[in-house]
Design a protein around this nucleic acid. Structure first.
Lengths: 335, 335
DNA sequence: ATGAAAGCGCTAACAC
DNA sequence: GTGTTAGCGCTTTCAT
């Protein structure tokens, strides 16, 4: 491995000079030195060990994103936003994946990022176990949860999941639906519980108590949607379904299709997330869009504020607005 | 920041002892010491600086994946495989994203991983510019390209893209098609050129010369598929289309649908990749499946061999077999 | 079984 | 402008 010492020796200067030249510090050295150093670096195939630099500087410009590889597909969209915003500020982004539910794998993913110098960590749709949250809090690293809210005091930027559940359900109610299912929901993380609560609240307002089989659990995946619809059955008495994610909605759509049910005429379906998938399926999917752009940007900004120590985080818990986009999967209830 | 020194001071032992205990080195110390050290570590909220350890050990157990965020969606599948296999060997995985086409962004992504201690880097569907390839080669880091082949001597594990193009086209030909389009192709990276060559070869065998407008360029995205089909037009004389990716195929499908063309009756469409999307769309998509499982596993294995220095890489360039999965988007040509 | 000391590659005072 | 020195947090001989 080639180090600055090797360059220093070859050029006949001190390692510190090499360091300064290569770091483009203000030009406190002759053009000649610069040229010699840079040439030598190139010739030797020098590659900086940024970790060593971070070690002495006690600072890194790497943002880490820990992403739950949950079977919905919005992660890509938000990662792209984070990356773009990070690049604007000269931050790099590394991503590690974990399954939201398994604490051991969670810990491994978390450790991967907090055991090395990172400027901050963004947790994407992660429901961290208590142990792992403690780990993170003790790690002396800035962090912020994205796209998942909590009822304790940890920092997050998320959609208001209670509102989402409510809004989706209310929308179907306003279209005349009263027998409305909720499909593909993962009750374990907060997100799921809140969306369910919103659903129940909207139904309660019109005096409807959901029957047990109306709510079908799952894991936000396409398969969950398929299964939920299979449970509802071809002769379901439901006229509308709130799906826990777009992928679930598509599963419901396809299984309904297999049952020869027409969406939206026989069954209205509304998704959650507003991913690109909505426009790709037939019929196009009416969905509650989460503002992934805003979440990504706000996440990076927040880490940046902490990095700059310009200000303490205010507004630690922040909701970003959602928007219901009407497409073709919902219509008025029949009767 | 709490270091082993702090623990050492608190417990009244040397830092080296703390290091040994915490690293679970063979039990060359009393149970009492172990207990004291571990307790102190917990109490102080000690967090290891793995980078510092890597620095002295001159070794890391992190595999880095550089992923081109090209608009096809197989990356998730292969990353999952890599992660699983890596975990088996105790390696961690970090992922960085880049756009395949922009050398500056490529370089930034590449630097992010080679400037720190990594055991090896896997390049996923990345067409590295010459400059950046040189950078990588000089970095003294093991690497291997995945899911993209090359005609120089760099190491890769990929599907045989020429064969893919040929196989897809030949399949349509065997179904009686002669006027066959190729949609959504990115000619820039090798992958695209090879698939196109395979397509041309298959057509040449039956004495058909593709007309200019049969081949529609793109970037593997859904939108590319839409656009390609728009170019072909509602009254296209094509009876079959080879799509450069599943997402392109779906774009073609949907635009055909808008044109009131029935797939496969009016137009047969075959995709490439074999992603989960194939089963989700209507009609289900016949596609050439790439074996992402095998690529992920083989990539990790190869890095591991290099890491262990057990053997030099043989079989540096390796093709993994593809498989044509018949679903519902192709049928016999009409006439 | 544990301590002392050296050093990984780099940067940042502080000299000169 | 550039060299000297110290040290980031950790591991690893080599002693004892």
């Amino acid at each position: 491995m080639i180090t600055i010492k090797d360059i220093a020796k070859k050029v006949g200067v001190a390692p510190s000079t090499v360091s300064r030249v290569l770091a483009n510090k203000a030009d406190f050295y002759t053009a000649e030195t610069v040229a010699k150093v840079k040439t030598a670096a190139r010739e030797l195939g020098y590659k900086k060990n940024q970790s060593a630099a971070d070690l002495v500087k006690q600072h890194s410009n790497v943002i880490a994103a820990v992403v739950s590889s949950v079977k919905t597909n919005f992660a890509g969209e938000i990662i792209e936003e984070i990356q773009k915003k990070a690049a604007e500020y000269g931050y790099k982004l590394i991503v590690v994946y974990s399954h939201s539910a398994d604490p051991v794998e969670q810990k491994s993913a978390l450790m991967t990022v907090i055991e090395r110098p990172v400027m901050g960590v963004l947790l994407l749709s992660m429901a961290l176990s208590d142990d792992n949250l403690k780990l993170l809090e003790e790690a002396q690293t800035s962090f912020c949860f994205l796209s998942m809210g909590f009822d304790d005091d940890r920092p997050f930027i998320s959609s208001d999941d209670l509102a989402i559940g409510y809004q989706a359900t209310k929308y179907l109610i306003d279209k005349g639906h009263r027998r409305i299912g909720f499909a593909g929901l993962d009750r374990y993380p907060n997100t799921g519980r809140l969306r369910l609560a919103g659903y129940q609240k909207a139904l309660a307002e019109i005096g409807v108590t959901p029957e047990d089989h109306w709510v079908q659990s799952g894991d936000y995946s396409y398969e969950s949607g398929l299964r939920a619809m299979q449970q509802y059955g071809a002769k379901t008495d439901l006229t509308g379904v709130v799906a826990a994610s777009d992928m679930v909605a598509i599963g419901v759509l396809n299984q309904a299709h297999l049952f020869k049910l027409s969406v939206p005429d026989d069954l209205s379906v509304i998704g959650i997330d507003g991913t690109e998938m909505c426009e790709i399926v037939q019929p196009q999917l009416t969905s509650i869009s989460q503002d992934f752009y805003k979440m990504g940007v706000a996440g990076v900004e927040r880490l940046r504020q902490l990095d700059l120590k310009q200000q303490v985080v205010k507004n630690k818990q922040e909701f970003v607005p959602t928007k219901l986009i009407e497409r073709g999967s919902v219509t008025y209830a029949a009767e």
